[in-house]
Simulated scan of single mutants.
Amino acid sequence: MANYFGETLCRSRAEKGLSQQQLANRLHVTRSAVANWETGHRLPNAAMISHIARALDADAAALLAAADESHDAPNVLLVDDSPIALEEGLPVLREALPNANDVGLASPAEAVRYFKNNPVALVLLDIKLGKTNGLDLCQELLQIRPNANVAYLTAYPEYSLDAWNTDACGFILKPLKAEEVRRLIPRLRHPVRGLL
C-alpha cells in the first residue's frame, strides 16, 4: 500500500523541526500514534488530519489528499476467536484478495475499535465469538458504519437463516477458501474498488 500520507506527515514534521513526541504532545496523542501514521500502519480520521494541519501549519487539503491516496489497498478484517482460524484464514485472504490489507483480530472489542478507527471494505465475521454473538456484532458494526460490507464465516450452516435476517451481504462456511472469497466480492452490497 502506498504511504503518501505518512511520507507527507514525516516531511512536514521534519520541516518544522519537531520530533514525533513533540507533535504527539501538540495533538494530545501518543508518540506511537504519530509513528503508526508515518509508517502507514494507521491513518488518522479527517478531524485529526485537520488538527495535524493546524499543529504543523500545513495545508489540510494536501494532507487529506495524501490520506486519500494512501487508501490504495482496502482493509479486510477477519474476526474469529480461534487463533488457528486466523492463522489459516489470513493466508487464504491474501491469496484471494492480493490487493487488500488483511487484518485478523480475535477479540470482538478490538474489532470494534479497529472498525471505528480505520476504513474497512469488508468484514468476515465468525458467528460464535466466545461470549459474543457474531450476529449482534454485525449489527453493532453496521450501526457505526451502515455502508459497510459484513459477511459471516462459520462452521455452523444452521445459522444461515439467522444470518440472512441481518444486513450482512454473505455467508461462507469454514474452512475459508479463496474461491469462496472471490465469489463473494461481486455480491457485496457496497462495491469496493481495488479488492480484486
Results as ranks from 00 to 15, higher is better:
M1L: 12
A2D: 08
A2R: 10
N3Y: 12
Y4L: 07
T8K: 13
T8C: 07
C10D: 06
G17Q: 02
G17M: 05
S19P: 15
L23M: 09
N25A: 03
R26Q: 10
H28T: 05
V29W: 01
A33S: 13
A33M: 09
A35N: 11
W37A: 08
E38K: 10
G40D: 03
H41Y: 15
L43M: 15
A46C: 03
A46P: 08
A47R: 12
S50A: 13
I52S: 10
A53F: 01
R54L: 14
A58I: 09
D59A: 01
A60H: 06
A61Q: 14
L63R: 04
L63C: 02
L64T: 02
A65M: 03
A66V: 03
A67Y: 05
D68G: 12
E69F: 04
A73K: 09
A73F: 01
N75L: 10
N75M: 09
V76Q: 08
L78T: 02
V79H: 04
D81N: 14
D81I: 00
D81S: 06
A85C: 09
A85I: 09
E88H: 03
G89H: 11
G89T: 08
P91C: 14
R94W: 00
E95I: 05
N99Y: 15
N101Q: 14
L105C: 05
L105H: 04
A106K: 13
S107E: 14
P108E: 07
E110D: 15
E110S: 15
E110Y: 14
V112K: 04
V112T: 10
R113I: 13
Y114L: 11
F115C: 08
N117Q: 11
N118A: 14
V120Q: 05
A121C: 12
L122Y: 00
L122W: 00
V123L: 06
V123C: 11
L124H: 04
D126N: 13
I127N: 03
K128E: 14
G130K: 00
K131I: 05
N133R: 02
G134P: 06
L135M: 08
L135D: 06
L137D: 00
C138T: 07
Q139P: 04
Q139G: 10
E140N: 11
L142P: 07
N147C: 03
A148W: 06
N149E: 14
Y152L: 15
Y152R: 02
A155P: 05
Y156N: 05
S160Q: 11
S160G: 01
L161H: 07
L161F: 07
D162Q: 15
D162M: 14
A163K: 06
N165D: 13
D167Q: 13
D167L: 11
D167G: 07
G170Q: 01
G170P: 01
F171K: 02
I172N: 12
K174N: 02
K174I: 09
L176N: 04
L176S: 08
K177T: 06
K177G: 03
E179V: 09
E179Q: 12
E180G: 00
V181S: 01
R182L: 03
R183V: 00
R183Q: 08
R183M: 05
L184Q: 05
L184W: 09
R187P: 00
R189I: 00
H190D: 07
V192S: 08
R193L: 12
L196Q: 13
